[in-house]
Design a protein around this nucleic acid. Structure first.
Length: 484
DNA sequence: TTGAGTTTCGC
DNA sequence: CGAAACTCA
């Protein structure tokens, strides 16, 4: 008996799932197949933190469907499909259109050819409001509203005619080990997703607008849905419709409006990447390929300091170390980390882009590359934003609570030294028992100088003819014709 | 979603 | 006179 294969890629939820719904309609038994590789980058293994999150999602699904309805493979999809096809014969394949990196794109082309040769129909459904091969944003907003307000693909997992032939070997030992090692990370899976979602709209989100730019407040008062969205534990439509159901909650107005605009951005940036996927490798504005950058040993050393949270600028280091330890950082501080890398350290954005991708638990290719390039100011269409990490620290962490949480070596320092330890005299270093260069690094750049240098270079570069011509092209393709 | 400098507002 | 708004890079 031929089976219908549902290959959800990164979309692991149990509701509002078009491929599952359609696959279950035709009468053939349905088999859910999940393969791990490739997920991140070709030169980087699927990281443990992401693996753990996905694993938890799979356990969640597994508990809701019959034994053998989920088939987990660790080798590449084509080989896995070959095996399945030989054993059970695949009637049709159902997926979402993944907006992913070049490696998953190449994988999908191989799968497409594989299907063609065997006469297997592969249907891929759009994710959210993202449109494949889109060249203009005319009417895109209307489309977004239509998609987000349309009814959800509700399905009842227990009513599906499941094929019961798959193999899932869930190693409890490994799961426990991973849980232990990453206890500070968010838990994956659909049950967790809905707990997090409900707590946001019932309580945590009330001060969203006020808290979102603070590295400490955001941990609780931001939605924390990004990882669940990235790994498909929930669809954007589900989140948006939940938001609408709370829309008139008294005294939540500001926060709900702010949250709503961020949900719009989500698809917008993924759409940008879909329409311009070379962004993974090149500046969207080619005029910036020749931008002078620090290279060689100096670049390597500065990059290492940035990656490990050892730059000697407390706010930068605290953000990086917090991110490495929890997989999460609020949007504003992420922007500051990128700004520091590309503006203050004057390093090529490509040197840091994979590092953040692999530590963000919520890594979403389209958002990541669009945001990284925008913050690196290599688009030519956005205003140049050079963050001052000292100022950000003074504003967002006036008491040094966040800094001291992640940089315990600065615990004894009073204001203003936990923001600017390099200003301590040798005597002060002695009295506070913090020796710069051994207990905590000396700052690797002078923020005032690097700010000035970046400022003059970037504004000058932005006015170059080649940058301007490219900017026109980008605006025409990615921005709504009616505005700007 | 920037920062620094300048101007205007409002008490 | 300080805070908010505005402007330019």
């Amino acid at each position: 008996m031929a089976i219908n294969l549902v290959w959800p890629k990164r979309d692991l939820r149990q509701q509002d799932h078009k491929p599952l719904l359609e696959a279950s309609k035709s009468g053939h038994p349905v088999l859910l197949v999940y393969n791990f590789e490739p997920m991140l980058f070709e030169d980087q293994h699927f990281s443990d933190r992401h693996w753990r999150f996905v694993w938890q999602s799979l356990i969640d699904i597994k508990s809701k469907i019959p034994q053998g309805a989920l088939h987990i493979v660790s080798k590449d999809a084509k080989q896995a499909f070959n095996d399945i096809h030989q054993k059970w014969h695949i009637n049709a394949l159902y997926s979402y259109q993944e907006i992913g990196l070049n490696n998953t794109f190449k994988r999908d082309i191989a799968i497409q050819n594989w299907c063609l040769k065997r006469g297997i129909q592969w249907t891929e459904y759009p994710i959210g409001a993202v449109i494949r091969a889109l060249n203009s944003r005319q009417n895109w907003d209307t489309h977004w509203q239509q998609v987000m307000r349309s009814s959800q693909d509700n399905l009842n997992l227990s009513q599906i005619n499941w094929g019961q032939i798959g193999t899932t070997e869930l190693s409890t030992f490994l799961v426990n080990k991973l849980n232990e090692q990453y206890s500070t990370f968010q838990q994956g899976g659909e049950s967790m997703t809905h707990k997090v979602l409900d707590s946001f709209f019932q309580q945590r989100g009330k001060s969203y607008a006020f808290s979102l730019s603070s590295p400490s407040l955001s941990v609780e008062h931001c939605s924390r849905l990004s990882a669940y969205l990235a790994w498909g534990n929930i669809s954007l439509k589900q989140v948006y419709q939940k938001l609408l159901s709370y829309w008139h909650k008294p005294s939540w107005r500001r926060s709900l409006v702010a949250f709503s605009s961020r949900l719009h951005w989500h698809c917008h940036f993924i759409q940008k990447f879909e329409s311009e996927c070379q962004m993974e490798f090149y500046c969207i504005n080619k005029g910036y390929e020749a931008l002078p950058r620090v290279t060689g040993d100096e670049a390597f050393e500065k990059l290492q300091a940035w990656k490990t949270g050892q730059t000697g600028i407390p706010m930068v280091d605290a953000c990086m170390r917090s991110l490495i330890n929890t997989g999460y950082l609020n949007f504003r501080m992420r922007a500051m980390l990128v700004s520091f890398l590309t503006h203050h350290l004057a390093l090529d954005w490509r040197l840091g882009v994979k590092h953040l991708a692999s530590v963000f638990l919520d890594f979403e290719p389209g958002i990541h590359y669009s945001q990284f390039q925008m913050q690196a100011s290599v688009t030519g269409i956005n205003t140049i934003r050079i963050y001052n990490p000292i100022k950000q620290g003074e504003e967002k962490d006036p008491d040094g609570e966040f800094i001291k949480t992640w940089l315990p070596e600065l615990n004894e320092l009073p204001a203003p030294f936990f923001h600017t330890p390099w200003e301590m005299t040798p005597m002060e270093q002695l009295m506070y028992n913090v020796e710069l260069g051994s207990d905590y690094p000396m700052q690797i750049v002078d923020i005032k100088q690097s700010y000035k240098a970046a400022q003059s270079l970037l504004w000058q570069w932005k006015s170059k003819p080649q940058v301007k011509i490219e900017a026109q092209r980008i605006l025409a393709k990615h921005v709504r014709p009616s505005t700007s």
